[in-house]
Amino acid sequence: MTSATLGVRRGRAKGSPLARRRRRVFGPFLAPALILYTIMFMVPTAYSFYASFTSWDGFSNPRWKGTLNYDHLRHDPAFKDAFFNTLKLLFGCGIFLFILSFAFMLMLREMKGRRFIQGFIFLPHIVSGVALAAFWDFLLNHDGMLNKGLHSFGLGPVDWLKPQWQFNAILIAIVWINTGYYVTILMAGVDRIPPYYYEEAKLAGTNSWQRFRHITLPMSWDVIGTAAVLWTIGTVKIFEFILAFSGSQGNLPTTNQWTSAMYVYGETIGGTSPIYDFGRACAGAVVTLVAVVLVVVVLRRVTSRDRLEL
């Protein structure tokens, strides 16, 4: 660099000593994280897309087989179960969870001790899903607590965990685990609505329903949208609760309890007799990722359009 260009650069605001110093460390400060993240996160992501078109056991070199894995997925009952259970969690559980969280949030805002309650219902979110599953199983078991409680009222034991019901028990548990988290997120969003909106609406003689309908609801679309995106990303991670709750004697849960993450584990190294079908598991993971991306894009569009209508 010649001294002439140096002079020109120094003359600009960007060439302040501080900015130049920052530029000098930009590379070295960023490099370790960026390199590790690229090699062990983004490259594996890309590789999964490639591997989904191959036959691969994870050890030897993958062999190209076109779209066969995807063709197979369409007829694989285990994958169908896993995929539809994930959708069930995403939408069925999600709608219930959001209505409950939003209602709790609104009520909590008017209750005494709301900080305390909010802190308390957050608890299940920060402990191990396996631990909660152990408790949940003890609660609903045939000899479990709920039936013991019913028995003392003279009511017969109910088979809470019969196959048709078991996944519903999981759905309820997942709602329970996540409610506190989403109440807190929604609360933070609604707290940001400027108070004078309400003050002026009150002066205009509105009732509380009108204030809710025309201030709280439209102004929380933003945070509801973000929370929905978080939930979408979160549902595909649900794994250990189901494994610990429904798995038995070292076997994986039956496939009608599977989710997307369970499929990847079950098709590769999981269970008492592993299958090692890495290629097909990658295809399953890719389908899940694509579904997540689609849902996120739709959610973003819906929530941003509704905000514009304001």
Binding site: M42, V236, Y263, F278, T288
Partner: peptide
């Protein structure tokens, strides 16, 4: 670069885990 990092927030574990398994093995 920030966006590149944020992208990782949306990628589920099951998509990266199998290639990682191979690398680690």
């Amino acid at each position: 670069v920030s966006m590149y990092f944020v992208l990782g927030l949306g990628i589920p574990m099951q998509i990266i885990v199998l290639p990682l398994y191979s690398i680690m093995a």
